[in-house]
């Protein structure tokens, strides 16, 4: 549904040029929720603005539902843009318009009749559960309500694609959850493809099917969300996952970490579980089987894309052969369990 081909965007200033988007290729299948995560300044804002041509890419192609945006005339582009909804971090509602009139705006711009506008806006108000606020002004709404108005407005022209630019970054955690589940619901109900950018793992975890990591204008990693949590490849992705799973650095252990095994040292291992392996008493079962002791240093459980994932950091007490067997055995679970040796400690 959304295809980005070799996309570049650079800004020319007096004495230097900044490359914000540096050769991005991306493919988002219809009906999916695709998340792009990155730190501030990574180029994600520019990237999402290139997708609906708010920013014209310096080179490369954006293909939306088979249409090459760069080849459209101005009026064709405006028509295509009407079918690409967008919501923003700061909602961007018009203060001079009521909730109803804000949602009606894209329909007015598209030249819909008064009757159609009435019908459509009222059904959208129901969808986002704001029928009782239709005559209020944005200044009378909470942040979450404002974003729901913005979502309704973005859906007014029945878009095929919804772009979310840090849509929950200005909201508190509870409101974030509510907005995310609304987006998920819209995705299910209307089968709209959603491309979102964020710096919050919470967003990726809750609603995305796929995720890509952007750094310095490049996609450095892309995978399904489960695989992202289970198997982050790059340092940046690992940082995102570890921080999100509340894994703390362990100074009292890490100073004594030694890369090589030596007699009398214990193995420090990070274990990641997906799905029903979380519920099984796997660790204690194996500990008994291989006759080693396990001390849990850190633990966290998260629900990722409706699957439960467990994150453990454990210290293994036992001789080298037994602990190696333990780890090798875990490796046989492949996609559902992952064990990484972090080092050795006293």
């Amino acid at each position: 549904m959304i295809e980005l081909i070799n996309l570049y965007k650079s800004y020319q200033s007096k004495d230097n040029s900044v490359i914000a988007v540096n050769g991005i290729n991306l493919n988002v299948a219809a009906g999916k929720i695709f998340g792009i995560i990155g730190l501030s300044g990574a180029g994600k804002s520019t990237l999402i603005r290139c997708v609906n041509f708010l920013e014209k890419p310096s080179s490369g192609e954006v293909v939306i539902n088979g249409k090459y945006l760069s080849q459209l005339s101005n009026s064709e582009l405006h028509q295509t843009q009407q079918k690409i909804g967008m919501i923003f971090q700061h909602f961007n509602l018009l203060n001079s318009r009521t909730v109803f009139a804000n949602i009606a705006l894209p329909l007015e711009l598209a030249g819909s009749s008064k009757q159609d506008i009435n019908l459509k806006v009222n059904s959208l108000l129901q969808l986002v559960d704001l029928t009782d606020k239709k005559n209020n002004y944005p200044s009378q709404l909470s942040g979450g309500q404002k974003q729901r108005v913005a979502i309704a407005r973005a859906l007014a022209n029945d878009p095929e694609v919804l772009l979310c630019d840090e849509a929950t970054s200005a909201l508190d955690p509870q409101t974030t959850d509510a907005i995310l589940s609304l987006l998920k619901q819209i995705n299910n109900k209307l089968n709209i493809t959603i491309l979102l950018i964020t710096h919050e793992m919470e967003v990726v975890k809750n609603i995305c099917d796929q995720v890509a990591v952007i750094d310095q204008g490049k996609i450095i990693e892309a995978s399904t969300v489960e695989n992202f949590f289970l198997n982050p490849q790059t340092q940046l992705a690992q940082n995102f996952v570890r921080t999100f799973c509340n894994e703390k650095p362990m100074p009292e252990i890490s100073v004594e970490f030694q890369p090589q095994y030596s007699e009398g040292k214990n193995l420090i291992v990070r274990l990641t579980f997906v799905g029903n392996k979380v519920a099984e008493p796997l660790v204690t079962k194996l500990a008994k089987k291989f006759n080693i002791d396990v001390s849990i240093l850190q633990a966290d459980i998260e629900t990722v894309n409706e699957k439960t994932m467990g994150f453990l950091v454990v210290e293994l007490y036992g001789d080298k052969q037994k602990t190696t067997e333990f780890i090798d055995h875990l490796a046989t679970y492949e996609t559902s369990v992952k064990a990484e040796v972090l080092g050795y400690a006293n």
Partner: peptide, 10 residues
């Protein structure tokens, strides 16, 4: 941002 929003609506 408001003008940008308008542009995003075509």
């Amino acid at each position: 941002g408001l003008l940008e929003t308008g542009k995003s609506m075509g």
